[in-house]
Design a protein around this nucleic acid. Structure first.
Lengths: 232, 232
DNA sequence: GCGTCGTTTCGGCCGCCGCCGAAGCGTCCC
DNA sequence: GGGACGCTTCGGCGGCGGCCGAAACGACGC
């Protein structure tokens, strides 16, 4: 009985150990919207002294979960990639199982309505957008990704979001939303879509929160896609 | 700046801590094919004394990752659910990133050709089956799952796999294969499909391995679905 | 009933790691 | 250059937890 995974279990344990501390878990969760934050801010967020946070950040970078970007006397940390974000969300989702909806209920309504998850959209808006894309046959289930159909590219172009044929080459991925328990669009395609929604002024970030607010041109735009923001 | 996730980071850390030890990670990986194994066997697999394994198993059960099924003087442990299997695979996949394919190369060819992942099919066969289902428009991307289309149900029925309209109500999920890096079918629908392949004698498990062998009626059956086992 | 076997509990050892304050280093600004 | 600031390194403390052998427990088979 040669154990089937001689080395992989060590790597698995390694990743587990990186998440095993509330301070580190808090740091990862604080970065899950794709933002980059300086060490001091992360220390405050995690509730530990700068010295402690520094050690944690060092370990997270060494473990490949965080990327580091030094700028002047600040050192900005962000998640090393989308797969890390996906990993953390998967784990957080699994950890929440039963009391998930209850735990997020009262003050977090804007968060549940629309927020960023790494660099794509989540919350009810993310789910609604995914549903509309499905209904319009805008998505094709590929063998290694979810891609935009020709009809989908046309639809998004007509809505003023995408340039011509933009997005046809982008690989998307479905991602289970941890508040809504339904699919939304992630991956490169999901990221681009979110990016365009910001550029076009349909959505804008709120300060100090992952939640999103409706931009000046957002209501009309979303309505043209068949989504009513006020009823989300 | 109220930290956005007051409690969830503790739960995340909790799960991380459960994975953080190579012995526990090994136990989880040993159970990822959905099998149930007695404590002693898991101790040997993890390379620790029975006493140590017992403590680990206790923690894993308390943490909700393992389920326990006592039978006589044996106590069988298995993963608590498919979401746990998905979680472990996601983590193992993320941990492997670069050297994944290399690490599995030589002796594991049967494993890469066809194996079980929890209770559904993976490996090249799993991927090929998913591709054929896609090509036949047998799958529909739902808002919370991948479901069988009417055409798909008919196709699988005609192939002698499913009973009438069986599987229309089952929720499937796509799952990224960690050797092939492509989608295959998981979830209840994927499980049922794998189950039928065993029942019909198309596939059978190998001893002491997650790899699968071709059953007596498998070659003809798969060929009728457009899959050539010998070229997988 | 009595050994055997699978499993758990107990006790003790040891190492790893999180935590902090203080000190050191580099950057920025005046 | 001097001082403020952001961050890291160092040193030391404390606790959690992994590991094992020995012993206890319960089920099975004769």
């Amino acid at each position: 009985m040669t154990s089937a995974a001689p080395t992989s279990r060590h790597r698995l344990a390694e990743i587990g150990a990186l998440l095993a501390e509330p301070a580190r878990a808090g740091i990862l969760l604080a970065l899950i919207d794709g933002s980059a934050r300086p060490a001091g801010e992360l220390a405050a967020l995690a509730g530990v002294a700068p010295a402690t946070a520094s050690a944690h950040l060092q370990r997270l970078v060494a473990g490949g979960l965080l990327a580091l970007h030094a700028q002047g006397r600040h050192r900005y940390f962000r998640l090393a990639g989308e797969d890390v974000a996906h990993l953390v969300e998967t784990l957080a989702l699994a950890g929440a199982h039963a009391p998930a909806a209850a735990a997020v209920s009262p003050a977090d309504t804007p968060l549940r309505r629309a927020r960023t998850c790494y660099r794509h959209l989540a919350g009810r808006l993310g789910v609604a957008l995914f549903e509309r894309l499905r209904e319009r046959d805008a998505l094709e289930l590929g063998s290694d990704a979810i891609r935009l159909s020709a009809a989908g590219a046309r639809w998004l172009h007509d809505a003023g979001l995408f340039d011509d044929d933009e997005g046809l080459a982008l690989a998307g991925r479905s991602c289970v939303d941890w508040t809504e328990r339904r699919f939304h669009l992630a991956g490169a395609l999901g990221n681009r879509l979110a990016e365009r929604l910001f550029e076009r002024g349909w959505l804008r970030p709120r300060r100090d929160s992952r939640a999103l607010a409706l931009g000046a041109r957002g209501d009309a735009g979303l309505r043209a896609l068949g989504i009513d923001w006020t009823r989300l």
